[in-house]
Design a protein around this nucleic acid. Structure first.
Length: 781
RNA sequence: UGGGGGAUCGUCUAAUGGCAGGACGACGGAUUCUGGCUCCGUCUAUCUAGGUUCGAAUCCUAGUCCCCCAGCCA
């Protein structure tokens, strides 16, 4: 993390794409990204993912990343949020340099481009009220919409009306500027989407200068273009907006063309991430504010004691992909413990005190013991201030944790109990001599005697203790407020199904205690971090005042004893339950899938004819019959000299290898004829080339239209089938991969394929796999 | 349902026709002046069904399930 060397450079589909773009010299090899929040709320850990990706890739490719406030909606935004966003991005560890931008600075340019669209006849002023357009004109996902009666207004009229819109002649919603695209588009976003709307509202930056404001789909792509953004990275829900993004760029004829790419947003278990839900938590006073330490906001996480390094590490470890996923918060907790372990000096505090009287210790005597801040073997990070050790007062009356004493200890108990001997950490070994109870039977005091030979907690050779517990001197303890934070919700996915997420709040997400702490803690300042031994990692809260320290628990220590206790109580953890449920659901789904018997699909007459005439597998026949391009090629190929004998390989070649290409590129014809296909099939049949090579040749044919034989000669693809030629390569591979050979001999038969592959690679893909196999089998016995 | 995306251990993710790998987690053990840290071991996966191939998570076909889009929010 902070000073640990980062593991391998992260790689993912976005970085791969950018690497390819740079290699191809797109945008002169430059990379410009942007992080574009709307300043209408606080950033949360989901935004952190976008920030890490946007700033991270820019840095990795030697480019730059802009921080841009996407402030096109005057009614929701404010300067307070702008400042909060800047603070949080900086805290996370990123720097935008001079590149801070505001969409609101581009309002005039948006307006000019809107007029341009009107003049090109690609936008119009529409008078339809919102609900009318939505109900009567937009259509539905299955039915096309119909055109607005205002769609055919003249350029002059549109221009005049649009200027009046700007001049404030109309009320909110009375008119809107629409793109003139296609009311029948299968993509709802393309059905004449609104570009500029009327809003008589004060904007926090432009004041009352404007009463028309651009909408996201019009503004965002242009902002990217204006700023020279090359890669506009956003989350998955904008996938269907990409077509419109490209339309606006093309229609406005802006010189710079950015490209949008989408990735999956970050979700975490046991929390909510949507702005709407977070707002409800704040407004409903379920939390103390946007920076409540239980909130997934960056401000909340910071106050909770999470480090920016730990958050960046979470993003790095969870990766970038397009799968919609929910990361287990246990991973974040693991990462922050790992990080805090090196940042947090160890001190002691007793959260739920129980008096322990050391009867063998003289009344009134206090001894200062030396206690190291760091356990042996733990290397503190560079930026920690507290090193070495501090003094710990030992006295006759101490406090220990109530949980560390049991009158009737359960099996496996490693703490104090009558007659048991434990080490008081850095203190003395004590033996429990008895308990005192009040009238109600409550334990109020534990009595013990100490062993003077164990000063500092040392145990003479051979001596065993039942365990080690933490403690503080009652005479010298300082009171500190301890805020124990736990997960905000009881369930992994709050609000899942039709549940109300507020009913799934964890009532015990905050416990406030007055703890007894060792005296050194009195000097703690806000931001200081500690590990309270055997309890958890804590940070000193900003609410602390002189003499009144407040500690927030960032994360508890792992507690394997608690797990034992929970298990003996027989309560399955919620995780077990939910994963079990998942599994059942999955199995059910599979059963349901299996039920319908594979109905023998009826072949069309044409497909049946192909199957019968050439002995084709039904599936292949069906594909040929329904794809005219393939069918033409097939019949032409049959007319080639050896075509009739190759009917089946030709058919599979077409249906299996060519079909995908045709569909992917939406080709209506290919640059070669049936004879070429027959020739290719012939080459494969004669084992002049291998099946894998067939695909390479086919791709080349598609690209250049050259004849198969010519391509094989030109690229030197002809197969090597001679054992004499291949034997040395096989020998070499075996010699270089002794470990793989070992695994094969040990029983991992899959290694065989890998060895074939290695020989293949060494031969430039030209070796005949059947011959390789024979050679390998002979060698490996 | 039209369009656009996605499906790999319980979770997240890798493998770009050639040994299904890593991390978290769970379980067991070693070590320990924190039931922490550290170390060792074990567990668990390619949505289904066909096809192509010497070889398929990856290519082809058909299906299943999940997500997004019908704000004048972003």
């Amino acid at each position: 993390m902070s000073d640990a060397p980062t593991a391998a450079q992260p790689t993912d589909f976005i970085r791969e794409m950018i690497r390819a773009d740079v290699a191809a010299g797109k945008h002169g090899g430059k990379v410009v990204t942007r992080f574009p929040p709307e300043p209408n709320g606080y950033l949360h850990i989901g935004h952190a993912k976008a920030i890490c990706i946007d700033f991270g890739v820019a840095k990795e490719f030697g480019g730059r990343c802009h921080l841009r406030m996407d402030d096109t909606n005057p009614t929701t935004e404010s300067m307070e949020y702008v400042e909060a966003i800047k603070r949080d991005v900086r805290w996370l560890g990123f720097d935008w340099g001079e590149h801070l931008y505001f969409a609101s600075d581009y309002f005039e340019r948006f307006y000019e481009l809107a007029e341009k669209l009107i003049m090109k006849g690609r936008a119009y002023v529409c008078d339809l009220p919102e609900e009318v357009f939505s109900k009567e004109y937009r259509g539905t996902i299955t039915e096309p919409g119909k055109e607005s009666p205002y769609r055919s207004r003249s350029v002059e009229e549109n221009l005049e009306l649009f200027r009046q819109m700007r001049a404030g002649k109309f009320k909110d919603g009375e008119k809107v500027l629409r793109a003139k695209i296609d009311m029948a588009s299968p993509n709802m976003k393309m059905r004449d989407p609104p570009l500029m709307r009327i809003k008589h509202a004060h904007h926090y930056r432009t004041g009352d200068k404007w009463c028309i404001y651009p909408l996201y789909d019009f503004a965002h792509c242009l902002e990217d273009s204006f700023e020279g953004v090359t890669h506009s990275l956003c989350t998955l829900e904008f996938e269907s907006a990409r077509e419109l993004y490209d339309w606006v760029i093309q229609a406005t004829e802006v010189p710079h063309v950015p490209k949008q790419t989408e990735f999956a947003r970050l979700n975490l278990t046991y929390t909510v991430m949507s702005k709407r839900k977070l707002q409800k938590l704040v407004e409903g006073k379920h939390v103390s504010g946007w920076d409540d330490p239980r909130m997934p906001t960056l401000a909340g996480l910071r106050r909770r004691g999470y480090t920016p390094e730990s958050i960046r590490e979470l993003i790095a470890r969870t990766g970038v992909a397009k799968n919609i996923s929910t990361v287990d918060v246990a991973l974040l907790e693991h990462i922050v413990r790992e990080d805090l372990d090196r940042r947090s000096p160890r001190v002691m505090a007793v959260l739920r005190p129980l008096e322990l009287v050391v009867e063998s210790w003289p009344e009134g005597e206090i001894e200062e013991l030396d206690a190291p801040y760091w356990p042996a073997g733990t290397e503190p990070g560079e930026d920690v201030k507290l090193r070495g050790s501090r003094k710990l007062p030992f006295s006759r009356v101490l406090y220990i944790e109530r949980d560390d004493f049991a009158e009737q200890p359960p099996k496996g108990w490693k703490r104090l109990a009558p007659g048991r001997k434990v080490r008081l950490r850095h203190g003395y070994v004590v033996t429990c001599a008895g308990v005192e109870k009040d009238a109600s039977g409550q334990i109020v005091r534990v009595r013990a005697t100490h062993d003077p030979a164990t000063r500092g907690g040392a145990t003479p050779a051979g001596e065993k203790v039942d365990g080690t517990i933490h403690w503080v001197s009652a005479a010298r303890a300082v009171d500190v407020e301890v805020r124990l934070y736990d997960r905000l919700f009881l369930v992994e996915n709050p609000g899942e199904g039709d549940k109300d997420f507020l009913e799934e709040l964890n009532p015990a997400s905050l416990t406030v205690l007055t703890a007894k702490a060792e005296p050194s803690l009195a000097a703690a300042k806000p931001g200081d971090r500690f590990q309270l031994e055997r309890t958890g990692f804590f940070i000193v809260d900003e609410d602390s005042k002189d003499g009144a320290v407040v500690l927030n628990r960032t994360v508890a220590l792992k507690d394997s004893w608690q797990k034992v206790v929970a298990k003996s109580e027989g309560a399955p953890s919620s995780r077990d339950v939910s994963s079990k449920r998942e599994k059942e659901k999955k199995e059910k789904g599979r059963e349901a899938e299996k039920k319908p018997e594979p109905a023998a699909t009826e072949l069309s007459p044409e497909a049946a004819r192909l199957r019968d005439a050439h002995g084709l597998p039904p599936e292949t026949a069906r594909i040929l019959a329904q794809e005219p391009v393939l069918l033409d090629l097939f019949s032409a190929a049959l007319d080639a000299p050896n075509g009739k004998d190759l009917a089946k390989p030709i058919a599979t070649l077409l249906a299996n290898d060519l079909l995908g290409e045709i569909r992917a590129r939406k080709l209506e014809k290919v640059p070669f004829g049936g004879a070429a296909v027959a020739e290719l099939a012939g080459l494969a049949k004669a084992e002049t080339i291998s099946t894998a090579q067939t695909k390479i040749v086919l791709a080349e044919m598609l690209a250049t239209g050259k004849a198969p034989k010519a391509i094989v000669d030109e690229k030197g693809l002809a197969q090597i089938a001679s054992a004499d030629a291949l034997a040395p390569i096989v020998e070499q591979v075996l010699a270089e991969n002794a470990d793989a050979v070992g695994r094969y001999r040990a029983g991992n038969k899959n290694v065989f394929g890998a060895l074939v592959g290695m020989v293949m690679k060494k031969s430039g893909g030209r070796a005949n796999p059947k011959v390789i196999k024979e050679l390998l089998e002979k060698k490996l016995g």
